[in-house]
């Protein structure tokens, strides 16, 4: 019986190899187009791309009233008219997804001269790490895992990826806020995000008549939850960025980490200097960690003023034209060192 089973299993493996071959030639491209739009875009455009610009919604969100609706990547590209800059965007994306995109650049087809990746401070917080959007993001990269394509397709059907329920993710988020201790080099009364958040939630802002100013309290709490954390090498996003930096180092491609501007003004006025301290401390951590070798951190953290943020009631990195232009200019200035010949002053 054992011999019989071995023969049947071997036959099955041979059949699977054949089926994988058939799948690659028939349905794979269709599935890839449906599920991994960005990876298809990378593959389609890599031959003529000099610079890849990987971003989340910060790149394409504009203010409706802006007369110029160009994205940050478009505005950056204006400084290098002879180069092709290809932007690959997906809302809520983070380093865990960027690293998969990177690995799908076929260096034998064309090696890009530089890669710009947005370094979004909020993407390191518990709310983003445990966001309910994570399931969809993880689903978008299953088909390009390092297994045979047919196996990847089957794994997709089996939902074999980080596929927690919304409730589980929310619980993980809450646990993080409850249990992760905040560290300050000075005395501070709140030890966790939860304590800080609850305190502002209860005793935040009052209107002149003494009633709570609900919207302002809500926004304040968002700021706390978005930026109150201490970056360490244990943060999963730090690990992802380490991988990105390592990949670029290994393949000798210059990497520009576009540290996005945050609304420091509002963080200060709503929450206070302690939160701004944490934001700057985390920025310093990232600059120190990644600003070396062929990797450069483009620090935009404090460059955009409060009113230039298009969302005034939420924490986002969506900017009006002036904000986008400022960031694009700063990115272009960093790229200038590498592309001094191609650089043309655009505005």
């Amino acid at each position: 019986m054992f011999k019989k089973i071995v023969i049947k299993v071997s036959t099955l493996i041979i059949i699977l190899i054949g089926l994988n071959f058939i799948y690659n030639f028939t349905l794979y491209e269709k599935d890839l187009n449906e599920k991994c739009e960005q990876i298809v875009e990378i593959r389609d455009k890599q031959a003529e791309t000099d610079i890849f610009y990987f971003a989340e919604s910060s790149n394409f969100n504009t203010r409706e009233t802006d007369s110029i609706q160009s994205t940050i990547s478009d505005l950056t590209a204006m400084f290098f008219p002879s180069l092709t800059l290809t932007a690959i965007n997906k809302p809520a994306t983070h380093a865990g997804i960027y690293k998969v995109w990177l690995k799908n650049i076929n260096l034998e087809v064309n090696k890009p001269k530089a890669i710009v990746v947005t370094l979004n401070l909020r993407s390191f917080d518990a709310a983003w790490i445990h966001s309910v959007l994570e399931t969809q993001l993880q689903e978008s990269v299953v088909l390009v895992r390092p297994y045979p394509n047919l196996i990847n397709r089957f794994l997709l059907s089996l939902q074999a990826f980080d596929n927690k329920t919304n409730e589980q993710r929310e619980q993980d988020m809450l646990n993080d806020w409850l249990n992760t201790q905040l560290v300050f080099p000075f005395d501070f009364k709140y030890k966790t995000v939860r304590e800080w958040d609850v305190s502002f939630g209860q005793y935040g802002w009052d209107l002149a008549d003494g009633t709570p100013e609900k919207n302002k309290i809500l926004l304040t709490c968002h700021y706390i939850k978005a930026y109150a954390f201490n970056l360490t090498e244990n943060n999963p996003r730090v690990k992802d960025f380490d991988e990105i930096a390592g990949w670029c180092q290994k393949n000798n491609i210059n990497l520009y980490l576009n540290l996005l501007a945050e609304n420091i003004e509002y963080a200060d006025s709503l929450v206070g200097k302690e939160l701004v301290f944490l934001m700057k401390q985390n920025r310093d951590y990232l600059v120190k960690r990644y600003n070396k070798g062929n990797c450069k951190v483009v620090d935009n953290l404090e460059l955009v003023n409060g009113l230039e943020f298009t969302d005034q009631t939420w924490t986002t990195e969506h900017y009006g034209y002036k904000g986008r232009m400022t960031i694009a200019k700063n990115v272009a200035n960093s790229l200038k060192d590498q592309f001094s010949k191609e650089y043309k002053k655009a505005y």
Binding site: L19, T26, L150, R153, F154, S157
Partner: peptide, 20 residues
Amino acid sequence: RWAFYTVLLFCLMALSGTQK
């Protein structure tokens, strides 16, 4: 029989629904 398995396997692995 094996032809049948092959068709079923291909459908299962390549054509299954992708939602949970």
